[in-house]
Amino acid sequence: MTSRFLPYATTPGRLTAQLISDLLAAAWITIWVMVGLGVHRAIAEIATVGTQVKDGATGISDNLSSAGDSADRIPLVGDAVSTPLRAASEAALDLAGAGQNLNTTATWLAILLAIAVAAPPILAIGMPWLFLRIRFFRRKWTVIALAQTPAGEQLLALRALANRPLRRLTEVNEDPVGAWRRQDPHAVRGLAALELRSAGVARVTSVR
């Protein structure tokens, strides 16, 4: 985990916390994806009914239409017999259209309801997690880049003087401000290391 291109800390405690947060976020997202898929499957059953209605009504319509064609050939009464059969065939076609509409509507409803159920809780956790991870990665990238130059290391040391607890500063040097002003290499490196650790970076191997 030492690469600056990885969005993870190199300090053990923070790295552990990040890995645990990743696992929790992944588990949360997985749970709600499964819930969304369950909702989709439940609503999709209605679409299956619509398909069955369409297929059945289409078959009945075809049979009635064939019967009408056959009845039309009956002498004298053929027209009288075929007319109601053809009317029934058209009614069956209307029913088939209704089944197709039910299938289409239920299919889209299944998708929309699955998204409506799963998306809010996923976004509620996923977006803050992603924001914090991106912010951490940008800070890690910046402090590592600064630590590669003497001037950048001094800037990190100055930030440590402004932001780190006094106890931590005095552990580096009894007079941390004076040591920084004198550009004491050991003190500057120690103060910069405090700022690096606060950003989740254990150490930077070289300074140009």
Rank of each mutant, 00 (worst) to 15 (best):
residue 91 A to D: 14
residue 35 V to M: 07
residue 13 G to T: 05
residue 99 G to M: 01
residue 117 V to H: 06
residue 116 A to D: 13
residue 53 V to W: 13
residue 20 I to A: 06
residue 14 R to F: 04
residue 73 R to N: 13
residue 123 L to Y: 06
residue 116 A to Q: 13
residue 116 A to S: 15
residue 80 A to G: 09
residue 41 R to T: 11
residue 27 A to W: 02
residue 69 D to Y: 15
residue 16 T to Q: 06
residue 11 T to A: 09
residue 122 I to D: 00
residue 16 T to A: 10
residue 89 S to H: 00
residue 126 G to A: 01
residue 100 Q to H: 09
residue 46 I to E: 10
residue 97 G to V: 07
residue 20 I to N: 05
residue 120 P to Q: 02
residue 29 I to N: 00
residue 94 D to F: 13
residue 76 L to D: 12
residue 63 N to I: 15
residue 97 G to K: 05
residue 100 Q to N: 06
residue 36 G to Q: 02
residue 70 S to A: 12
residue 123 L to I: 11
residue 46 I to Y: 12
residue 21 S to C: 10
residue 81 V to G: 13
residue 113 L to D: 03
residue 22 D to V: 04
residue 25 A to H: 07
residue 88 A to W: 10
residue 83 T to R: 14
residue 12 P to Q: 04
residue 29 I to Y: 00
residue 108 W to N: 11
residue 12 P to W: 03
residue 29 I to A: 04
residue 121 P to Q: 02
residue 71 A to N: 03
residue 80 A to T: 11
residue 18 Q to N: 08
residue 10 T to K: 04
residue 126 G to E: 02
residue 79 D to F: 08
residue 35 V to F: 01
residue 63 N to Q: 15
residue 36 G to M: 04
residue 105 T to V: 15
residue 48 T to W: 12
residue 109 L to T: 04
residue 105 T to D: 15
residue 31 I to Q: 15
residue 72 D to V: 10
